[in-house]
Amino acid sequence: MKLFRYVFLFIFLVSCSPKENHSYTFYYWKTKLSLNQGEKKTLDQVTFPYLYTRFFDIDKIDGKFQPVGVITKDKSFETQKQIVPTVFITNRTFLYIKKEEITFLAKNISDLIQKKVSEFDLKTNNEIQIDCDWTAGTKDDYFKFLKELQKVSGREVTCTLRLHQVKDKNQTGIPPVKKVYLMCYSTSSPLENSDKNSILDVNTLKSYLSKVDEYPIRQIEVALPIYSWGIVTNYLGKHKLINALSKNDLQNPNFKMISENEAEIRKDGFYFGNYLNKGFRIKIEEISDQQLEDVVDFLQKKIPHFNIIYYQLDNKFVTDQNFTL
C-alpha cells in the first residue's frame, strides 16, 4: 500500500510539473534585408537575443565556387538583436573538392561575411552557422571545411542537422562542432504524390528522431517551421510550388474544393502570379499549433534544454501566430 502511494505521488508530481518555456527567435531568409512594421513588432517580442540571418548561398557552377544571392540592405532593417551570419552551401560544392580548395573556400566565405558585416554595420555575435545537407560521400571534406572556417574566421562555427543525419549518423558522421541546429521540417519531398504533409509529418519526424537522445553532440537547438505553400499538380502529375499560400487562398469562386486543403481550378487564369489551367489542383500545406506542440513535447523527452528558431521571419507567417511553446 505504501509503495502504491509513492508511485501515485511520483506520477502526480511529474504530471503537474511545469512545462519548460523555450526561448525563441527566427531565421531571416531573404536576399534583401528589410523589415516591415509587423516583422519589427514580432522581432521585438522574441525572447532570444539572436537573429539567424542568411548572408548568401555557395554553389559550384561550371567547376567554380560561386556566391549566390548575396544580401543587400535597406534602412528599414534595424534591430537590437545580434545577427548570426548563416550561409547555405550545396552538397555538390564538396564533391571532388581538393584540399587547397577547402582552404580557399573557407577563407573567401569568411572574408565575404566580414565584408557584409562591415558594409551594413551589423551587430553580430561570435558565431557563423553553416547550412548544408551533407551526405556520407561528402562528410569528410565538409567536416574539414568546418574546421578550416573556424580557424580562418576566429568565430565559433555551428551547423544545421537534418533528420536523416540523425537517423543515419553512423553513415553521415558527426560534424566537428560544439552546437547543432536540428531542422524539424522537410520530412518528405513536396513533389511526391503523398497524403502526408511534406513540410512536417510528426509521425515521420518521431521515427527519424527516435534516438536523438543518443546523438553525441549535446548542445542542440531546434528549428521549427511556420511557413506554408501550395503544391500545384497539372494533368501529367507534374508538380510546382507556390510559396506562402494558405487555406484562405483557396476561397475563390473559380476554385472547387475537393478536400479541406485542396481545390481544383475551374477556369484558366492567373492565380498567385502564375497562369494555371482549368483542371489543375492546388494542395495547401501549412503548419498548425498542435503539430508544433507535438514536436516540442516529443523533443523535451529527448533533449534536456533547447531554444527554438522559427523558419522564417516573414509577415506572411508571423501574423496571429503563437510562439510560446
Rank of each mutant, 00 (worst) to 15 (best):
D62T: 00
T90S: 14
T103V: 13
F94E: 06
C132T: 10
Q80N: 15
I109L: 11
E127T: 15
F56N: 02
E39M: 08
I97N: 14
G63Q: 12
T124A: 07
V70F: 06
V84M: 09
Q66H: 12
L122H: 05
K115W: 03
K41A: 08
I89H: 00
L95N: 15
L35Q: 09
K115E: 13
V87L: 07
F65P: 12
Q37C: 10
I128T: 06
F77C: 11
G63Y: 01
V70E: 07
F55R: 05
K123F: 01
E78S: 12
T72A: 00
T124Y: 04
K41T: 14
K64Y: 07
F65V: 04
I128C: 12
V46I: 12
V46S: 13
I130T: 00
N108L: 01
Q37Y: 13
K139A: 04
T90N: 12
D111H: 11
V68W: 03
I58H: 00
K41C: 02
Q45H: 11
E100V: 01
K73P: 08
V117Q: 12
L122R: 03
I71N: 03
E119F: 13
K81S: 13
V70A: 13
I83E: 13
E39P: 03
G137S: 15
E100A: 07
I113C: 11
Q82W: 12
G137R: 13
Q82R: 15
T138E: 09
K98T: 08
I113P: 00
Q114G: 10
D57N: 07
E100H: 09
F77P: 10
K139R: 07
D59M: 12
S34L: 06
I97Y: 04
K41S: 08
K64M: 07
D57W: 01
F56Q: 01
V46H: 15
F104Q: 12
I71M: 05
K139C: 00
I109S: 15
I58K: 00
T138F: 01
Q82L: 08
Y50H: 15
V117L: 10
R54I: 02
D59H: 09
T86N: 02
G69V: 00
Q45S: 15
E119D: 10
I89D: 03
N125A: 09
T72G: 04
R92W: 08
K75V: 07
T124V: 11
L95A: 05
E78C: 10
